[in-house]
Amino acid sequence: MAHSFLSIENLTQRFASGKGEDLTVFEDASFGIEKGEFVCILGHSGCGKSTIMNILAGLAEPTSGVVLMDGKEVSGPSLDRGVVFQNYSLMPWLSALKNVTFAVAARYPRWSKAKVVEHSTQYLAMVGLQGDAIHRKPAQLSGGMRQRVSIARAFANHPKLLLLDEPFGALDALTRGTIQDELLKIWGGTEQTVFMITHDVDEAILLADRILLMTNGPYARVAESVEITIPRPRKREEIIEHPNYYLIRNHLLHFLGTRSKVLSGQRTGQGSNRPQTIRLDRMEETATESEDPAQATSLRAVNE
């Protein structure tokens, strides 16, 4: 098969446990992400989602397997891969603006100070932080505002791959909704490739082009890749009316409810551990052999 923009090959992670037997978190995980794609990964706690994210970020080393981005092997952290951490990870001694300029200056060392500030201010404005608020310290900002700063910091750097580690996990439901909308807005204007961990099924459907489903650990694997057959631009209130919404949602919930356990530890066979592509589309069933070109381009299959 052709290599994807980001290609994860036979990734395995084992941790030494005290009793002499190693704990295998996941084994031979393989999947790809295309350029410009928004991919969410769903799975129960302990299946190794965060470990995969840390490996992609270059903050952790896999026991075996490789990660290729643009055909090159990923090793160590890089400015090409931006990370938004769950707990924001803002420097508490810097103002919101300085937290962003610090990152922008690291990315573009040749830019003048004024340009760095202008660029940073612009990205903070894109997530709705303006005026006096950008000069406040993180402790003086609400959780939602802090995560906005963190998102602005990541997008302002134009990484080739943006990694979001449960970015809305610590926020209340209403704030989460607002920031999801802002994330969609800021992402819509870019060709940014995004890989995001989440626990929230509705959030994943709203944001993602594709959702990867992981079975439970140990020996977890990426079992399915579910395409989200709901056209963009999506609006939170509108997508729930879409005929495919509950079809997809029920599929995801069934997976998380039962099949994540049943499939746990099983291999797909043929030595390939690539996820099975699932495409659920009620529109296609009703339409006469739909090959709607507009939809076909917006959906990509990874498993040839």
Partner: peptide
């Protein structure tokens, strides 16, 4: 986390 931020910013 802060060390990781420094690392991801090279």
């Amino acid at each position: 986390d802060w060390i990781n931020v420094a690392r991801t910013h090279e």
